[in-house]
Design a protein around this nucleic acid. Structure first.
Lengths: 216, 216
DNA sequence: TAGATTGTTAATCGATTAACAATC
DNA sequence: TAGATTGTTAATCGATTAACAATC
């Protein structure tokens, strides 16, 4: 799904603003100008003002932005003032690592269940979350108001499982499988392709070495 | 570090081309035109040709691209024809999950060691990789020709650890900590901020709901 | 009031798409 | 040779930055 109106380039930056404002808040900073923030974040002040003004005038001329207010407002924009129930499909290392990560809950993302095909995992709990078998998934989604499914399964199964999830009312998929899902336009997909991230890193290392070879 | 010459927008797409070409190769497809590939990947044929031509003329008029050749060439561009030795700092759930993920090795990314501050983990092995204490890290980097460090530690320690790693010769950091690192310009940093990814997902779910409220 | 800083319009820059001549 | 499809230039589109009037 593609967001209309506000560009994904802006949305990609929002969580980073949120993070910096959270740190300022912790440090007891009350207000900040786009100029000061731009220096900390290493972006232009113009971009900050443009980005924020997509959502409303959060600042005040001559004063800047109130840190606490802006933090709260961006949180609302990102949907962090609501609860989002999740299930994790695939209770392997990555699935369990994500289930164990308690910090998501502080932002409202609550993992309600873990699912796997491996019967030896059935009934085991991770941070109090039970691992269930796949045949329970449909009723579980209905009974627990699940909005987001986290896909941490091998790519071979990912597409068919994703389709099944969508048929059963899942609104969004956080996809860690190494494949594209091609779901209906109304389903939100956020991909985390770790191997591709590692390849970009590798490319940049290589390129740096090459461009500096002549220095030796 | 920012790559010069070729834009990061292009580099971001490169691993995806590689993935699709790998699948075509597995399916026994010998050649493909930019037009056919564009339909599969849901991008424009023009973009594919432009992207590839940043690196050279891999195609042939009237024929298209040889799948195997292009796959190999993109692999080389991404540095997948070389070995990259890695260490993982932080042997918690995520660090261990990444260590367990054998597929990275097939692309040349070899995890040589796992490091943690928790003494109860010392000596434990994950997929044959020993967990070591932090005081061994400096000599380990030197003796094992380590290029990449994977940071899976809490953000409080991330910046100081990153600086220490750079002082000891690390060239690139795959950063899973929820903070920006601000390292010297010659160090490659690839961030994987999972909580920010989840926030973007949340934003897009919310926006979809809002824009379709009136339908009810 | 004077100074600071936003919100917003206009200018620039870069990335994407379209078009087509070159050529296999 | 005729048809297909690339490589590449030109046109368009969108995102970023600069500038400044509005206003706290």
């Amino acid at each position: 799904m593609e967001g209309r109106g506000i560009s994904q380039a802006v949305i990609r930056r929002l969580p980073r603003y949120y993070r910096y404002l959270g740190e300022l808040l912790e440090d007891g900073v009350e207000r900040i100008s786009s100029n000061d923030l731009s220096k900390r974040m290493k972006v232009t002040a113009s971009q900050i003002r443009q980005d924020l003004n997509n959502f409303g005038g959060f600042g005040q001329q001559g004063y800047g932005y109130n840190v606490k207010y802006l933090y709260t407002e961006i949180g609302k924009i990102l949907g962090l003032d609501r609860k989002h129930n999740m299930i994790i499909i695939g209770a392997g290392n990555l699935g369990q690592a994500l289930a164990n990560y308690a910090a998501f809950e502080r932002s409202g993302f609550v993992t309600k269940g873990l699912f796997d095909v491996n019967p030896t995992l059935a009934g085991i709990t991770v941070r109090g979350i039970e691992i269930r078998m796949m045949d329970e998934i449909k009723s579980f989604i209905k009974n627990n108001d699940i909005e987001i499914a986290v896909l941490t399964i091998p790519k071979a199964k990912a597409i068919s499982v994703a389709n099944m999830l969508v048929e059963n009312g899942i609104r969004a998929i956080w996809n860690f499988a190494h494949t594209d899902l091609n779901l209906p336009e109304n389903i939100v997909v956020e991909n985390v392709h770790l191997s591709e991230s590692l390849m970009r890193l590798s490319y940049n290392v290589l390129r740096y070495k090459e461009t500096h070879q002549e220095d030796k």
